[in-house]
């Protein structure tokens, strides 16, 4: 009787391990395209970029404050639509410890400066000339917005256009107390 019980337990364990292995395989292949390395709750990869005014921005220096990281390009229409809303929310949240950092994907200084001027953007805009920050954040589609909380952890990843209400809610969620 005892032996039989033991055998059942062994079998159960073997089958359970195999089921977990298969489950993991299926799960990762299905979700592979969506999120690769970057996960909500994980440490946001640190980076350093220079903005159009020549000022250096290192993500880790924003620790203790919230950061809305926005990847964009001049050709991206949804980016263009959401910028005015981001600009307005930036103005109201900047004093509450939530910063906006826009990262352009490898375009020329001329194009970016011209665009920023015509869109009246006042938050810091950087250019990821070598696409290394884009790779680190695994950005494939624009716009992509990463919300980073005061601990430097990723609070939320948004791909695609956001409404002004969403932007406000996202910024509220990473507001340091």
């Amino acid at each position: 009787m005892d032996k039989k019980k033991k055998r059942s337990i062994t079998r159960g364990i073997i089958l359970a391990l195999l089921a977990v292995a298969i489950g993991y395989t299926v799960y990762t292949t299905i979700t592979k395209d969506k999120v690769d390395v970057l996960k909500v709750g994980a440490e946001a990869p640190d980076f350093e970029l220079v903005d159009l005014n020549g000022e250096m921005h290192r993500l880790s220096e924003y620790k203790g404050q919230g950061v809305l990281l926005n990847f964009w390009g001049t050709w991206c229409e949804p980016c263009k639509r959401e910028f005015p809303a981001i600009e307005r929310q930036y103005k109201s949240f900047e004093t509450q410890g939530v910063h906006v950092l826009a990262v352009n994907i490898a375009q020329s200084d001329f194009e970016v400066k011209n665009y920023v001027k015509s869109m009246n953007m006042t938050f810091p805009v950087t250019i990821d000339k070598t696409k290394s920050v884009m790779n680190a954040y695994n950005v494939t589609n624009l716009p992509a917005t990463i919300l980073i909380n005061k601990e430097g952890k990723i609070e939320k990843i948004v791909t695609g256009e956001m409404t002004e209400a969403q932007i406000a809610a996202h910024m509220e969620s990473i507001k340091p107390e």
């Binding site: 073997i14 292995a21 298969i22 299926v26 292949t29």
Partner: peptide, 22 residues
């Protein structure tokens, strides 16, 4: 080849090989 059902099929074959061998 990355569909869930194909993966499960391969997985079941693996289970069959392991269990039958034991």
């Amino acid at each position: 080849y990355s569909s869930w059902w194909f993966q499960i099929l391969v997985g079941m074959l693996a289970v069959s090989i392991i269990v039958a061998s034991i």
